[in-house]
Amino acid sequence: MNNVIELNRVSKNYGSSRGVLDLNVGIAEGQITGLLGPNGCGKTTLIKLIMGLLQPDTGEVRLAGKAPRESLHLVSYLPEKTYLRDSITMKEAFDVFTAFYVDFSVERARHILSEFRIEERIPLRNMSKGMQEKAQLSLVMGRECPLYILDEPMGGVDPLSRETILREILQNYHPGSAMLLSTHLVSEVESIFERVLFMDEGRIIEDVEVEKIRMEENMSIDAYFRKIYKNKENRHVG
């Protein structure tokens, strides 16, 4: 399988605080990959580097074999922040996505929005944080493209809504597309991953197939996640 994302020796330093360090990773076509790690471990920085929203200090990022800004039409991206202005309604947001993305389906986005029980005509400012995240997800999953990058899609929502969000991601995710999903809520989403990257302090500390964790370690990803970071903590204490 070809890699849709490739990072070669990528580092990004934020001055006093660390970003990411010497990352080498490839994400294959058609694979759902989890990007896991505690808050502040570098997940969002890695995603921003892939999307061309940050420039690496060293190394190279390739998206579908090209520089990120040349392949943006191939990616449906959900940032951890609310990227729509607060006065916009979802109806207007659908118009924006229809204008810029040929692979955007208003019907699909409307369907997802109705599943989330959100009105199209409500301005974003009148929605809760959780509703805003869901509304943005309807835009992102309303596209049918080769790569989905979702940065903490369930960060600010209640447990019940997380189930709904996960269901909508899985139902609307186009088979054959690759997905990179970052989260620190491992137990809620682990069932969808085929591969997981564990990050800590700006580095990828483990890159494993989910099947291998389940078969060889006889563990859930959540248990494996806890084991890794507990070991690391113990080493720090030791």
Partner: peptide
């Protein structure tokens, strides 16, 4: 924050 949308549009 709107830059996350504008800079990822295919333009």
């Amino acid at each position: 924050d709107q830059g996350y949308l504008i800079h990822t549009l295919p333009v």
